[in-house]
Design a protein around this nucleic acid. Structure first.
Length: 965
RNA sequence: AGGCGCGUAGCUCAGUUGGUUAGAGCGCUACCUUGACAUGGUAGAGGUCGUUGGUUCGACUCCAAUCGCGCCUACCA
């Protein structure tokens, strides 16, 4: 047997054990298990690296998985990653940028090759980090959303939805990211309040009767106005409805229209300029009024697009012109654009005065404001707070933009999902825009011919054969790819082999639980439910465990720009201060923050971060995982749990020291537990700790089943530290080392020591896999348990026969005795090591028997010099007093005890008891209480009062005695 | 604006269906290198449970109002 170091060192064991587990295939689902238990990992982005949220999330999942695996369930934890379309493309584009290249220089195929190469090289980063957390994921079945199998599932879903008319292509306003040149969904847009201005602009009436003033936050969009709307009930403007205005700077004439729905007379001037191609609300107004002659006679029916894909004003000289014509010919293509001119109409850019063509939107704004000012058409500029929508990836201000995109109809899909969740009201989000103008992702399985007809199919060949198209008939595949979330929504079944009818699908769908944070995930969950119900007729998971966010110790969200990010790996391995600073300040978007971050970091971690090990980190996450609450991650907490690991380690050292090579009364090893091989005697301590263990097992199992990982962690912590170590190990010492203890008693103690420890390790393994495995390997053989790994040992179950209330009561007496003496010593400043003579007064027969039986425990733990039972009426000499029930434990004053101190001590105790007695007395004196409260409660109060009064009397006589000294 | 959550010891958090003196860890104070562990041991100080009102014999717990903080959703040109 290798000797154990005095201090637990996680590094020596963690990676070694993980490798062993993985190599031996322990993570795979058992062949034989009973019930199926399955969790899908929320697939992390391949571009990602592990953050605290992952740490927390995976700790919870792994705890559940290990628990169920030990319970004998057929358990699968499905690993994998998300291809993260936009994020990944951006990473590789940035690399190209460093080489002074653009993705168009490479072309689509080469660019995608390059992404795959990047994935091969760097995509494993996060999965390596997941391994460091001890996550027992079934790596043999790792999946990637761009895998062949998953791509099949994506295509299959797309086609089936298309065939049912649930996927369609349409021209709509979308959220356009002018930097990434793609549409994004509502969920990828983050609106934040920013300070801006409100421009009040005058639009002159064409009849020369003055003007209307419109207020806007975006003056440059006026070039695309098709009307000004007022509320029909607004007295100020009612008479003007139908009149025309001259749209400044353009020479165009636009109507005044009435729209009650959109226009709030109380806001701004009560007049709203309508720019249908660049504002979602205006678009809705336009749809309501498009058939009115005054609108429809506007250029392009009033739907006037003024921007190109960079959100600069259109210009015939820029590339969009060519792109657009090409797109019209191909019926789709790389950039599905804009508004085609109405027959005989103008191209959009021709509507824009030449002066502004080609200007960026913000340059155009400046110019237009200046020009309006010059013509005295600018009434005023107010400061104004507004919500500015930005792309969550690029940070660019999103432009509502008119394009052709693919959509999924949400309402018919959501309906069964809602019924399933019974969540009642969910807002029907506008249909889900699923096409993205990027290259990395699942390409849309649609082909166009030169007439613009659309063919959807699994492949070009399939399309040709299905529609009887000749081989040389020109077809061109849609250039767009699907939103990454489209494939994520299929994750719970695409990973299991769908559309094939696989064994995995049989065993593990629907999965058991989805573990996820609040984040954006609501929509992901909703989409998984919709897709699951649609294609498998069943929900994708039976339960959803939603946990909070991991924040820093002050409750702030961790973010790179705040410089308060903690890396779970740094907590595991530790990191030096300088390295931590370097890490926190490198690659910053705003380098000017670096100084502040450095200062903050130096203050908070003057010595860097020490190494805590994975188990301590996991235990911390578990202990902080209260439901519905964010986690404030406090280093003090993880330090405490590192110490806990050390405590467990050293308890083991003690046990090993005492049991190794000795007779532990363990017979032939069987599965589960072994029977005693030789005669053995169990002390009250043995019976007590075994009883406590049974209750702890139950508490831990119930806590895990109820997702109360904090309760599970606390139960384990308390049992280990406060019961097993503080009391039981100490109580075992006089037995194991005592000359007068029988061999049978020693055997009993050894057996209990080692077997309780072995149980405790299995109990703790789901939360702390590494240390428990390491220790278990040493302890199990001695405890009479065989097996290659703790991972597949049965989770401990309560043995009712070992619950022993008598032993617990008896131990409570022993503990009270010992605590009483320690308290006197502590408060009287007597060294705990100093043996004291003890006298007992008011002793019952039961007390006498207990003293006799547990004498060696009392002597050892209370350090008594002698224990003498006084005659029934003998109150003994002047002493310091503690009560054990009605028995008085006396330590004679002699030279040991300070009289004044003892008086103070007694007075304090009497005061406390008196308050207690008064309170209870008052309660019992209230007839309403006695009448109305349940019998049991009243009796309890009565008993309590009697007890308190007895104790009070006892201490009072003691006080008088000492005062009279 | 709507919805949800949270305010308990200096700090981070528990507190099951209302019923003894509201608990733990860290921190703090005093003492102790006792043969598993100083990443330790023993003893101790510290809370009118955000505020106000109500229900009740009894409220940290239930109800209402209010203050403070956070999140989600939506959004007015």
């Amino acid at each position: 047997m290798i000797s154990m170091e005095k201090t637990y060192d996680p590094h020596a064991i963690e990676q070694r054990w993980y490798q062993t587990w993985e190599e031996r295939g322990y993570f795979a689902p058992s062949r034989s298990g009973k019930a199926g238990y399955c969790i899908m990992i929320p697939p992390p982005n391949i571009t990602g690296s592990l953050h605290m949220g992952h740490g927390f999330n995976n700790t919870i999942m792994d705890t559940l998985i290990r628990y169920h695996r030990m319970k004998g369930d057929k358990t699968l934890w499905q690993p994998g990653a998300d291809h993260a379309g936009i994020a990944t493309q951006m990473v590789v584009e940035r690399q190209l940028e460093a080489e002074d290249k653009k993705r168009h220089d490479l072309g689509r195929d080469k660019f995608i090759e390059r992404i795959w190469a990047w994935k091969k090289e760097s995509g494993g980063h996060i999965t390596r980090q997941l391994r460091r957390l001890g996550s027992s994921l079934d790596w043999q079945h790792e999946r990637f959303t761009m895998d062949e199998g998953l791509s099949e599932a994506v295509k299959e879903v797309f086609i089936r939805l298309y065939e049912e008319g649930l996927i369609y292509r349409g021209k709509r306003l979308v959220n356009w990211d002018p930097k990434l040149h793609t549409a994004i969904s509502d969920l990828e847009v983050l609106s934040e309040e920013e300070y801006g201005h409100m421009w009040h602009m005058r639009y002159p009436l064409t009849n020369g009767q003055g003007h209307l003033t419109v207020a806007t936050t975006r003056p440059e969009t006026m070039l695309g106005d098709c009307a000004v709307a007022v509320n029909p009930g607004d007295e100020r403007y009612r008479h003007m409805i139908g009149e025309r205005l001259e749209l400044p700077l353009t020479g165009r004439r636009i109507p005044i229209i009435a729209d009650a729905e959109h226009v709030d007379p109380a806001f701004g001037t009560g007049c709203v300029k309508i720019t249908p191609a660049h504002d979602f609300n205006d678009y809705a107004v336009w749809q309501r009024h498009r058939d009115e002659k005054a609108i429809s006679e506007q250029p392009n029916g009033g739907l006037i697009n003024i921007f190109n894909r960079d959100a600069a004003l259109l210009s015939a000289t820029n590339q969009d012109y060519d792109l657009r014509t090409r797109n019209q010919a191909s019926g789709g293509g790389e950039f599905a654009v804009l508004v085609e001119p109405a027959p005989g109409g103008k191209f959009p850019e021709e509507i824009i005065p030449e002066k502004y063509r080609g200007l960026d939107r913000y340059d155009a704004r400046k110019q237009i404001v200046a020009d309006l000012e010059e013509q005295d058409l600018l009434e005023k500029i107010d400061d104004h707070k507004l919500m500015v929508p930005r792309g969550d990836r690029s940070g660019a201000v999103i432009e509502p933009f008119l394009t052709d995109q693919w959509y999924v109809k949400i309402a018919p899909l959501a309906k069964p999902a809602i019924e399933a969740v019974e969540s009642g009201r969910i807002r029907f989000v506008p249909d889900w825009c699923i096409s993205r103008q990027i290259w990395w992702g699942h390409r849309i399985p649609a082909w166009y011919d030169e007439q613009g007809n659309v063919y959807v199919g699994r492949s070009e060949a399939e399309v040709r054969s299905q529609h009887h198209l000749a081989d040389d008939y020109p077809l061109r595949q849609d250039e767009d790819v699907l939103d990454t979330w489209f494939s994520s929504a299929l994750w719970p079944f695409s990973t299991l082999g769908w559309p094939g009818q696989t064994e995995h699908l049989q065993d593990f769908y629907p999965t058991s639980v989805l573990v996820t944070g609040f984040d954006i995930i609501f929509f992901w969950v909703a989409r998984m439910i919709m897709m699951g119900l649609k294609f498998l007729d069943d929900v994708p998971f039976k339960e959803v465990y939603v946990h909070g966010l991991v924040r820093d110790s002050h409750g702030d969200k961790m973010s790179k720009s705040k410089g308060n990010v903690l890396d779970p790996i740094d907590l595991i391995d530790g990191i030096e201060l300088e390295k931590l600073i370097e890490k926190r300040t490198s690659g910053m978007m705003q380098p000017q923050l670096a100084k502040k971050i450095e200062k903050l970091t130096r203050k908070e971690f003057p010595d860097g971060i020490p190494s805590f090990g994975t188990d301590a980190l996991r235990f911390t996450f578990a202990a902080l995982a209260a439901t519905g609450r964010d986690i404030k991650f406090d280093l003090g907490r993880i330090e405490g749990y590192r110490n806990f690991c050390n405590k467990l380690w050293n308890a083991t050292r003690y046990v090993m020291m005492n049991v190794e090579g000795r007779d532990c009364g363990v017979g032939e090893a069987k599965t589960g537990h072994s029977e005693p091989a030789a005669e053995l005697e169990r002390s009250v301590a043995d019976r007590w700790i075994l009883s406590r263990l049974q209750k702890t097992k139950q508490a831990v199992a119930e806590a895990i089943e109820g997702y109360r990982f904090d309760h599970a962690a606390q139960a384990i912590y308390e049992f280990t530290w406060n019961e097993y170590c503080d009391w039981y190990l100490e109580l075992s010492k006089p037995v194991l080392n005592g000359d007068n203890a029988s061999e049978a008693a020693k055997r009993g103690a050894r057996r209990t020591l080692v077997r309780v420890l072995e149980n405790l390790l299995r109990l703790t393994h789901p939360i702390m896999p590494f240390i428990t495995e390491e220790i278990w390997q040493r302890v199990a053989p001695i405890a009479g348990v065989t097996g290659n790994t703790i991972m597949t040992q049965p989770f401990p179950t309560q043995r009712k026969s070992l619950i022993n209330e008598v032993a617990e009561t008896e131990m409570a007496w022993v503990m009270q005795f010992i605590l009483g003496i320690r308290k006197i010593k502590g408060e009287m400043n007597i060294s705990p090591a100093k043996p004291v003579p003890v006298l007992l007064a008011n002793v019952s027969d039961n007390d006498k028997a207990l003293v006799e039986r547990h004498r060696r425990f009392l002597d050892f733990l209370a350090r008594t010099e002698s224990i003498e039972v006084l005659a029934p009426n003998d109150q003994g000499p002047e002493s310091s007093t503690a009560l054990v029930g009605e028995m008085k434990v006396l330590i004679p004053l002699a030279d040991l005890i300070d009289k004044e101190a003892e008086i103070k001590r007694l007075e304090k105790e009497i005061g406390r008891l008196q308050g207690d007695a008064d309170r209870t007395d008052k309660k019992l004196g209230n007839p309403k209480f006695v009448d109305k409260a349940p019998e049991a409660v009243v009796r309890k109060e009565r008993d309590k009062l009697v007890e308190t009064l007895k104790a009070l009397e006892s201490l009072q006589t003691q006080l008088v005695k000492i005062q009279n000294l």
